[in-house]
Design a protein around this nucleic acid. Structure first.
Lengths: 277, 277
DNA sequence: TAACAAATGGAATGAATATTCTAATCTCAC
DNA sequence: GTGAGATTAGAATATTCATTCCATTTGTTA
């Protein structure tokens, strides 16, 4: 009788409702108006709740869903829920597209396709970054760095490029930097001189490098102010940190582009320099 | 035993989970990690679904909610749903906040404004990258790397993070890599063993690091196939290179985010791996 | 090694939910 | 005013769901 209505986007559903509105019966029109005005209620509520808020009996809600071609309320609700999901996770679409191109393995293997995949992934990582980092955290981080005598950098394994880059930029800006790279011995010795007058920037993503997990608590215990950049609040460099930047949705180690953390440390360093004048 | 947990924001809940994570039992820790990584699944799923996706029995999910001070899963789920609701209508409030921070960016000194500047700059760098890199060059580059016995990496100064990252990824993929970093002596010695059977990836941007400019021609003269990543066709690592990737519009050294070259080398490495099968 | 405590998994339970069914009501044409 | 068809509301039902309970396993201390 109707469209398939199975895989329907929220916008398509809105259009369909608006189109059929006139042809619907009285009660059903009333429901149509309510669901268009309160899509969130429909997405999260039960039939009884939606019924009560829109002032109709529960069965009318189900009839409404049927009239739109759905098998029932639950089916229609999925469409309203997809709207919520889309709003909260803009990286969802890109990630989905990436999965698809990965499935088309033959095409996905051409180096050019691989590059565009990483580019689009990096794009969404940047969007997520700018949304998830709050001004308060950045201010706190630059304040810590501004007061620091020496800035210690801890980022091993896959995070090492980020630490190197931050070291480079900070030194260019005239800051005293100690890069904990473990060259020529233990990083424990390298970090031995760190005091409460200094600061530590720690960078670590899954799987967390063991040395990082070991050294970080030591420096925290010694009272060194710390800024952590990581991918989960459960990582070993969160507890005791003065400021934590959480960068979500980091891909597995071999697939990371480090785009988001690179941008973040860059902004930290330059922000520090500009604020210092 | 715990906080009220009744009216709790999503961010507060995240913090609470992170805080208690260590004190939780094994299964509960596993669940903690899952819910922090998949908040949307928790918001919209049933106990059975969440249990299946996180690989635990349903009862463990309920115990997890109890451990956090909630009366049950449903109660905890409300907090996760509030996140979806908050994210769905950001247009007004977020846009307003963004405008304000952009206005302040006239001052340009707020760290948050600095971050958004770097993010947008990185975005355009990525667009430029995907437009300027052609499939032919990428294919040629992966072909060179595929044939190479050892892969030598040369990227000093500001380009060092890119070289480090490429070394990391290639090694993860099982390639033999020699990173020319000059540790413990001259990079000339480190590169002494390179032959025509090997390959060199050179990365250099203005101002071109002197050692790079000196070493590159040597290896070219010895017949080592070379892939160059640089910002100008006039750079010292272009002449004699087998493949050249030109990344335009690189900002001055202290301001670069290295986003474009990081993506490029990543795509090269993964493309190499996929093509090798 | 033994005994205890904590934690776990899975089945049982009772509540909540969507859906269906049927009698009653309304609408409209004649 | 009357009858036919469509529409509605509310109770009945079958399903899904969260929660609880208990036997078993796991880890720890003596």
């Amino acid at each position: 009788m109707n469209k398939p209505a199975g895989a329907m986007s929220y916008d398509e559903l809105r259009g369909a409702i608006a189109q059929r509105h006139r042809a619907l019966s009285g009660r059903l029109q009333q429901i149509a108006e309510f669901v268009l005005d309160h899509p969130t209620d429909v997405a999260l509520g039960t039939v009884a709740e939606v019924a009560q808020r829109s002032g109709v009996p529960p069965s009318a809600i189900v009839r409404f869903a049927h009239a739109l071609g759905f098998g029932g309320f639950t089916e229609m609700q999925q469409v309203f829920r997809s709207r919520l999901v889309a709003g909260v996770a803009p990286s969802y679409k890109a990630r989905l597209a990436r999965m698809k191109s990965e499935e088309k393995s033959v095409l996905g293997r051409q180096p050019a396709a691989v590059l565009s995949r990483f580019v689009s992934e990096a794009q969404s990582a940047l969007v997520t970054l700018s949304q998830s980092v709050h001004a308060r955290e950045l201010d706190a981080a630059t304040a810590i760095l501004a007061k620091a005598r020496d800035i210690y950098l801890l980022g091993l394994g896959g995070s090492f490029p980020v630490a190197i880059h931050l070291a480079y930029v900070l030194r260019k800006l005239g800051r005293r930097v100690v890069l904990l790279d473990g060259t020529g011995g233990s990083i424990h010795e390298q970090s031995h001189a760190a005091t409460t007058e200094d600061a530590l920037v720690a960078i670590s993503f899954r799987n967390y490098y063991p040395d990082t997990a070991r050294l970080f608590p030591e420096l925290v215990a010694r009272g060194v102010p710390t800024i952590s950049i990581t991918d989960s609040l459960l990582s070993p460099i969160v507890e005791g940190a003065s400021v934590v930047f959480e960068i979500q949705d980091m891909p597995e180690p071999a697939l990371r582009t480090l785009v988001a953390p690179m941008c973040l440390v860059q902004a930290m360093a330059i922000g520090l320099d500009l604020a210092a004048d």
